[in-house]
Nucleic acid binder design. Structure first.
Lengths: 148, 148
DNA sequence: AGTAAATACTTGAAAATGTCAACTATATCT
DNA sequence: AGATATAGTTGACATTTTCAAGTATTTACT
């Protein structure tokens, strides 16, 4: 007496056609997946994204990080504190504006990132396994247009 | 001395190509938008989705709601409590399984939902204004395949 | 039939996340 | 020079998430 899954039962509801709902669901599934995949590396999704930008070499300030990843500036402080304690990044005072820090990845930050990127890459591949490569590219392209 | 926006600066980073990141960003923007749009109606995004399923007529149980909207069962309790206090839904004990409640929208629930649906519909239209109708349909289709 | 195991809902607590206001230091504007 | 704005930090508080435990009921097993 298994009973239909909730997905089967509610798939045709109006809610299931709302893109905002689908986005929320996709993100929920994704972030859970990502967080457990990253846990072994001592990272959470939120610290991973900051580390990723630090590794980019673009020398983000904390404010820029806050804007780009949609977190309050005060949370960036906490995340950078954590990454700095793990010696993955350093705060480097910016020469031309002494209010700001730019966040730079250490060597260890780079190698940790390389490992983490493998993990998120696999997680993404698994999440999107229903889509062909072409469809994945299309999804990325559409989302990019929506969020930037 | 405006300076480039963080989006301009980080648009080409590896992070910006990760679909999970784009999903998270899209969902963040969307839920903020939705919550403020729904606030006038005494609803949050989370209560809206439950109300929506109650209105569907499919008589969801609380467990089914929890599964479908990715919330812990204990949170469904709180949401249904709230909706019930607002007289938008009722818990109806299921006849063949006395452990379960089926969540049914009241008349007032239906009319509140109608109003709320207008609001989320507009919010979605605004969020997706960069995409053509065809692209929006494609996005919905791709997301549906990913999340169900 | 009778007992064990599983399920639905509820309650309460802890951890994580989100939001906001105030503060210091520095930079920009006029 | 003085007013105004910005970057980072701290701390408080609200919301959300995650868990563990309890009760009632149903299902599975013998």
């Amino acid at each position: 007496m298994a009973g239909k899954s909730s997905v089967e039962r509610f798939r045709e509801t109006e809610l299931a056609t709302e893109i905002e709902f689908l986005l929320a669901r996709a993100r929920n599934l994704g972030i859970i997946h990502a967080n457990e995949a990253l846990a072994d590396l001592g990272l959470r999704a939120r610290s991973y994204v900051v580390l990723s930008l630090a590794v980019s070499g673009l020398q983000p300030t904390q404010r820029e990080l806050a804007d780009f990843v949609n977190l309050d500036a005060s949370q960036i402080v906490a995340i950078v504190d954590d990454l700095e304690r793990q010696r993955l990044v350093v705060r480097q005072p910016a020469p031309h504006d002494r209010r700001t820090n730019v966040i730079i990845a250490t060597d260890e930050g780079h190698s940790r990132y390389t490992a983490a990127r493998k993990v998120t890459s696999r997680a993404e591949r698994e999440s999107l396994s229903e889509l062909s490569q072409h469809e994945q590219d299309m999804l990325r392209e559409l989302l990019t247009r929506v969020v930037f």
